[in-house]
């Protein structure tokens, strides 16, 4: 099992008027190219920051990020955008942050596919249990449906890895369960998934758990 993503001695500092605040420090982790890897820990442990660094949307202050064995964190903005376009699908915490609210469900899937240069496949809506809802506008969907649509969009991009930040934090039990089912579908399709979460249900689903505390791997 190879690693699709790896962080080597990664640290992130945020400048504040009171001085630099270290969000994570000396983190060395890997995301295998199969299964679900969960970064678990309480709020403020740095798991979301680590996820953003692995997703190449934030540069580490220290250390490097490797994608399929190649160091990528030092590349130019243009190169990083190209990598995100072709290989990575990132899901933000709030369902609405992962969707384009002015489009329908089907249009969101098409837009996601187009962004990665993929041909749109609307049958993916059925894979996540949203068949027949392609014409629904995003605000008309429930929180769980929106999150599953977000997963569908991630799938439509045919990424090498999907990174999800607290995908169930804003959902009730039933909706969360449906989202977890959709995550399993991703894994069954051979897409490795990395999740930052403190939800025990997500941790139970994981093939590998990396616990974090105070910005370091515990």
């Amino acid at each position: 099992m190879a690693d699709v993503l790896a962080a080597q001695g990664v640290g992130v500092d945020y400048p504040t008027p009171a001085g630099a605040v270290t969000a994570i420090d000396g983190v060395t982790v890997a995301v295998p190219d199969q299964g679900i890897t969960v970064f678990a820990g309480p709020s403020g442990s740095g798991k979301s920051t680590l996820l953003r660094v692995l997703a190449l949307v934030e540069r580490p202050t220290r250390g490097v990020v490797e994608l399929s064995g190649e160091t990528v964190s030092t590349r130019s903005h243009r190169q990083l955008r190209a990598l995100r376009r072709q290989t990575i699908a990132l899901m933000f915490q709030s369902p609405l942050e992962n969707l384009l609210p002015e489009l329908t469900a089907a249009q969101n899937v098409i837009a996601a596919a187009q962004s990665a240069g993929q041909a749109p496949d609307l049958e993916l809506l059925g894979v996540v249990g949203l068949d027949g809802m392609g014409d629904y506008r995003v605000p008309a969907l429930s929180g769980g449906q929106q999150q599953r649509l977000a997963l569908c969009c991630a799938l439509a991009r045919d990424p090498k890895v999907v990174l999800a930040d607290e995908p169930t934090s804003q959902l009730d039990d039933t909706s969360a369960g449906l989202v977890l089912e959709s995550l399993k579908v991703l894994v069954d399709r051979g897409v490795p998934v990395a999740v930052a979460s403190h939800d025990d249900r997500v941790i139970e689903l994981a093939d590998r758990v990396v616990r974090m505390r105070s910005g370091r791997v515990a």
Binding site: R78, Q86, F92, L100
Partner: peptide
């Protein structure tokens, strides 16, 4: 901002 972040994260310049 939310839409811009999503599109940028997906690789738009």
């Amino acid at each position: 901002q939310a839409v811009l972040r999503l599109l940028w994260a997906r690789g738009s310049s």
